[in-house]
Design a protein around this nucleic acid. Structure first.
Length: 589
RNA sequence: CGGGGUGUAGCUUAGCCUGGUAGAGCGCCUGGUUUGGGACCAGGAGGUCGUAGGUUCGAAUCCUAUCGCCCCGACCA
């Protein structure tokens, strides 16, 4: 049992001006965190308690599925990263650390970075410690602080420069084994989020810089999220970056040409919309849109319908480490025209040999014969046939899916919703084990790279996601198992010995029933105590004092409910034990 | 890094356009009256107006630079 007067819960009546969303405001108002700088937060005592509870649940679920806890350094020799497979992409988000020195000369020490994640540490470790199939599989995890130079920290703990993450790394002898490890983690994650009182949707996801063969994200639907997820009732769900639709039928026949390619003048018409308007009247659905990107320094082209957007994450399938949209200066000498008049009709590109490829989205086959830029400023081409006229290295899925398109599983309309990513699991394959030579010997004395998986949970982000999902106008509605305290005993008359005695007795009863108890013993007026109680969101409130005490009762109230139960003091132990049992039996309330 | 905004007491802010004594509410301290949903009265402490230059007799206010923070975009758990 903790007395309010002996801990520190600095609540605020008003939200600090730099908090914008409900969960961020409540983190501050309920005294859970305080800001040091952008994306840097101190966990105050009650915030730390929530964090520790979430971590404890996470440990239990990881251990249940065979996870082995360890703790790796935060400071990494830069060589580990340089040797790894993603140095070029990952260095942008890493902090470099040097010792401060004596200020009189520059450091000549080795270079270090702060760990944004730990594949580059765990893989060499496992390489040197495990060499036999007999020691596999293994799944190592840790719960530690991660450091990422986020370009834009946001919304408190939601996207921070320094945050708490659970990261796990599985090592298997076989691909089947790796899939089993992956599924165990999927199970652990589902159990973990459920126990945190959080409703999540697992979705298929892009593997991004991490790489690997497939992955799932655990998403909390919320308007303030950074991602869009696409799903249908048939059970299809994917991050929008990865989502596909059945827009293009599998058996679609390529359209036959309708005539010869014709050039026509389009002075000043450099947008899809301009070409769609009078006097040209070419609908966006009949235009080929050609976009230029730079992949590892070489230009490549992507062709989509005029009405579609390129989903840039999908360009990851092309095999470039880094890619970006090309600039006008890069485009004109390559194509022969400025953006707005570009196309990929054979023979019209000025310098085709410089290209790393021309990649076309499947959906352009729906156009059949359409209109595209002539690679000559102020001119377009019509009667352009996809098969006959367009130079295409290969077709693929490069367009962004839109709400309402047919689900790839069932054909019913896809739905789209914003979400917060709280967990991500990857089947990595051998990308890292090959790079770090993490191999084992099988029972036939053959050497193979280990098959890896990696699995992350944003612990501190999960904390905020719970608040975002569970709050009302008065404050937080903590789910039982992550609440900083589960029972709040409010003593309205802390100066009165009888009231204090009863309050202590109720607190002891709740504690004996297995709850964490906070006793509000402050010399504040009742209104202040009730407001604070709602704000900090303790699930079960027991109120002692005033009129009630004279009648020989105390009050029992659930934070999520409206009813106040008046319970005779003689029945306190039984009623409290019952209520605590009820609270503990709920995942979400 | 691009675009937009903002910086005045622990928190929320007024004042800035049109230069001339820095003001309020909450919180804090003292005393009193109160005591079931953020009490009231009286008294009090707390601000180099983000920082540095400049213009001016005079700058929170105008100008320049710089830093921090917030929001939108690319990135991510």
């Amino acid at each position: 049992m903790k007395k309010w007067s002996q801990t520190f819960i600095p609540t605020l009546k008003e939200s600090p001006a730099d908090a914008e969303i409900a969960s961020h405001k409540l983190l501050l108002r309920a005294g859970l965190v305080r800001k040091l700088g952008g994306g840097l937060y101190t966990f105050m005592p009650s915030g730390l308690r929530v964090l520790q509870k979430i971590m404890a649940i996470c440990r239990e679920e990881m251990d249940r599925e065979g996870g082995i806890e360890l703790a790796m350094p935060h400071v990494h020799p830069v060589e580990n990263w340089q040797k790894g497979p993603r140095w070029a992409a990952a260095r942008e988000i890493m902090y470099r650390v040097d010792h401060a020195g004596d200020g009189k000369r520059s450091s000549r020490d080795p270079e270090f970075v702060l760990g944004p994640t730990h594949e580059e540490v765990i893989t060499p470790l496992v390489k040197s410690e495990i060499t036999s199939y007999r020691d596999l599989p293994k799944n190592f995890y840790q719960i530690t602080t991660k450091f990422r130079n986020e370009i834009r920290p946001r919304y408190g703990l939601m996207r921070a420069r320094e945050f708490i993450m659970k990261d796990a790394y599985s090592f298997d002898a076989t691909d089947d084994g790796a899939i089993e490890s992956y599924n165990r983690m999927k199970r652990a994650y589902t159990a973990f989020f459920t126990r945190c009182g959080l409703k999540t949707i697992p979705v298929e996801a892009d593997t991004g810089v991490m790489g690997g063969s497939f992955s799932h994200e655990f998403m909390v639907p919320a308007p303030v999220g950074d991602d869009d997820i696409v799903y249908s009732d048939a059970g299809y769900s994917a991050n929008r970056e990865k989502a596909t639709s059945a827009l293009v039928p599998a058996d679609l026949a390529d359209a036959a040409p309708v005539g010869v390619v014709e050039e026509f003048a389009t002075p000043g018409a450099v947008t899809i919309a301009a070409l769609a308007a009078a006097p040209y009247g070419v609908p966006a659905e009949a235009q080929f849109k050609t976009l230029v990107f730079m992949g590892d320094g070489k230009p490549f082209l992507v062709v989509v319908r005029g009405c579609d957007d390129v989903e840039e994450a999908k360009l990851g399938s092309l095999g470039f480490q880094l890619w970006r949209a090309a600039t006008s200066e890069e485009i004109e000498p390559l194509m022969g025209a400025k953006p707005g008049s570009l196309g990929t009709v054979r023979g019209t590109i000025k310098n085709p040999d410089a290209l790393a490829g021309i990649f076309a989205d499947h959906a352009i086959r729906l156009i059949g014969n359409g209109t595209t830029g002539a690679n000559q400023d102020g001119f377009h081409l019509r009667n352009v046939n996809v098969v006959r006229d367009l130079a295409v290295t290969r077709f693929g899925d490069f367009r962004r899916v839109r709400e309402g398109e047919p689900c790839p599983k069932s054909g019913e309309p896809l739905k789209l919703v914003r979400a917060i990513e709280v967990g991500h699991i990857f089947k990595l394959g051998t990308k890292y084990s090959e790079k770090f030579d993490a191999v084992y010997t099988d029972d036939k004395k053959q050497s193979h790279p280990m098959v890896m998986g990696c699995y992350g949970i944003g612990i501190s982000r999960t904390l905020q996601a719970v608040i975002e999902q569970s709050n009302d106008a008065d404050g937080i509605l903590w789910p039982w198992h992550v609440a900083p305290w589960q029972v709040l005993v409010v003593n309205l008359d802390p100066q009165d010995e009888t009231a204090s005695g009863v309050a202590a007795q109720l607190a002891a009863a709740a504690e004996a029933a297995g709850a964490d108890v906070l006793l509000d013993d402050r010399a504040e007026r009742p209104g202040v105590k009730f407001k604070d109680a709602d704000l900090i969101g303790i699930p079960l409130r027991l109120t002692v004092g005033g009129k009630g005490l004279k009648e020989g009762i105390f009050e029992l109230k659930w934070r999520r409910g409206k009813d106040v139960q008046k319970v005779p003091l003689a029945e306190a132990d039984r009623a409290i034990a019952e209520a605590v049992r009820q609270g503990a039996g709920t995942a979400g309330s």
